[in-house]
């Protein structure tokens, strides 16, 4: 695999990333998920998923970490124009005017009260402004992607998993 300077090979990002030694607490390198995107999704996910997310703190953090890695890998396979569009949406939502207008707070997403985030999501979902309805659908959909492909989620769903155990994508696919 050549020319993957900014991107991991078309193989398992989880494998390649997890095999790299990481400083504890250091933010993992992202390919496509912007800093703003990650901040917003980490705040939105618990609100959307409610008690589906593990209550135990460590398990919850692990679930969110895995979710963000999944989203990053998902977005990293988008075409560049679409990656850019998604980043623009997150940049916009993270901006101060958007926070004041939509969340009704000066605080950053990471410190906004869940009740405010929930109120924003519920009003965006049925807003008369089409673009807000679209933002809602994007955030909701990425939350689904973050959680429901995790083994921990499958137990809640009663989904026993794939019939055949397979490793993630092999390093070379040819």
């Amino acid at each position: 695999m050549s020319d993957v300077t900014a991107a991991p090979p078309a193989s398992s990002p989880s494998r390649s990333r997890h095999s790299q030694p990481q400083t504890p607490g250091a933010a993992p390198a992202r390919v496509a998920l912007s800093r703003h995107g990650e901040e917003i999704l980490r705040a939105v996910t618990p609100v959307v998923l409610g008690s589906l997310l593990p209550a135990d703190r460590a398990a919850r953090v692990a679930a969110l970490d895995e979710g963000m890695t999944t989203i990053d890998d998902y977005l990293a396979n988008f075409s560049l124009p679409l990656q850019k569009q998604v980043q623009l949406v997150f940049g916009l939502l993270a901006s101060l005017p958007a926070r004041v207008l939509l969340l009704g707070t000066w605080k950053r997403w990471r410190s906004a009260e869940p009740a405010r985030i929930e109120a924003f999501l519920r009003s965006a979902q049925v807003s008369r402004i089409a673009v807000l309805r679209r933002f809602f659908a994007l955030l909701h959909s990425l939350t689904i992607i973050a959680w429901f492909d995790q083994r921990a989620a499958w137990d809640q769903l009663g989904y026993p998993g794939p019939p055949i155990e397979r490793p993630p994508w092999p390093e070379a696919s040819l």
Partner: peptide, 11 residues
Amino acid sequence: DFPLREVPSLA
């Protein structure tokens, strides 16, 4: 090669 996992496969 198919890992039967939804998100990485959709991606």
